[in-house]
Computed example of a mutant assay.
Amino acid sequence: MFTWICPQCGREVPPSYSECPTCAERRQQAAGGQPPTAAPPQQQPPQPQYAPQAAPPPQPQYAPPTQQYAPPVQQPPPQYAAAPPPQYAPPPQQQYAPPAQVYTIGEQKKGTPAWLVGIITVAVLGGALFGLYRFVGRNGTTSNAAAAKTDAPGTSSKNPYAKYVEVVGLRILENDAKKPIVRFAVVNHSPAELTGLELRVVLTSVDAKADVEPLSVIDAKVGTVPANGTKDVEAPLNTKLKVYELPDWQFVKTTFEITAPN
């Protein structure tokens, strides 16, 4: 049976009481002016009586058997004989017999005939002379062509104003009538004004040979060019080719001749 302990008097109180009856009675007596009566001693519940149990019978004691073990006999480790290395038979040696030398008495090695040596020498000298002749003849022809080209019409080497005039900025275009025209700028490098200037401009391909017909020959009346100045010129392009058949400006070479003033 469960009880709870009163915190004031320290007695056990049954769980059916919410308040300790001894403490409640003391408070009532104190309120009525009667001295508090001593609380009856708390009766302890009787202890249950248990019959003594008989002692268990003694258990027999057995001595553990003693076992005798013989010490293990240590056997020596087995000895293994090393396997003999394999024996290989040497490869058979090839026997080479020296070549038999045969000597012939009375025969001599034949050399190159003298007539063949002479023919080869003449052929080599003739080829060298022919190559030298061709090389010298080609250089002479090139020099003559360059000189003829310098002195030919279409250059400005003979006019006293040629060293002051320059043609730059060449452009090949089409006008509104689908006709080819050419535009370029004339530069005056002299400190004096040039008046009445007329040019004959020759357009050729950069890689064209000397005997090839030029792309076009243009007679342009430039007029007056100020000192150290430029002037833009536009003229019709007389050519048998279409505009799309003409090379680009970077592949066109321009030469000119001053026709006026002389």
Rank of each mutant, 00 (worst) to 15 (best):
M1Q: 03
F2L: 03
G10C: 05
G10S: 14
R11K: 14
E12H: 07
C20F: 04
C23P: 02
C23M: 10
R27Q: 11
Q29C: 07
A30W: 04
A30Y: 04
G32T: 08
P45G: 11
P48W: 05
Y50M: 10
A51C: 07
P52G: 12
A55Q: 15
P56L: 12
P57H: 05
Q59W: 02
Q59L: 15
Q59H: 09
Q59K: 11
Q61C: 02
Y62I: 09
P64H: 01
T66Y: 06
Y69C: 01
P77A: 14
P77V: 09
P78Y: 08
P78S: 10
Y80D: 02
A81Y: 07
P86C: 08
Q87E: 14
Q87W: 08
A89T: 15
P91M: 03
P91L: 06
Q93Y: 01
Q93G: 03
Y103F: 13
G106Y: 12
G106K: 10
K109N: 13
K110F: 04
K110G: 06
A114R: 08
A114H: 03
W115T: 09
T121L: 15
T121I: 14
A123E: 02
A123S: 12
G126N: 04
F130Q: 02
G131M: 06
R134I: 04
R134H: 06
R134Y: 05
F135H: 03
R138F: 10
R138T: 10
N139L: 09
G140Q: 11
G140M: 05
A147L: 11
S156R: 07
K163N: 13
E166P: 00
E166W: 01
E166L: 08
I172G: 00
E174S: 15
N175L: 06
R183C: 02
S190G: 14
S190N: 15
P191A: 09
E193K: 12
E193T: 13
T195I: 08
L199P: 00
R200M: 11
L203G: 06
S205T: 14
K209R: 12
A210Q: 10
A210M: 07
D211K: 07
D219Y: 11
A220N: 05
V222Y: 00
T224K: 09
P226K: 07
A227W: 04
K231W: 00
K231Y: 01
E234H: 01
A235M: 09
P236C: 07
K240Y: 11
K240N: 15
L241E: 06
L241H: 06
L241N: 06
D248G: 14
F251Q: 13
T254W: 00
I258F: 02
A260C: 05
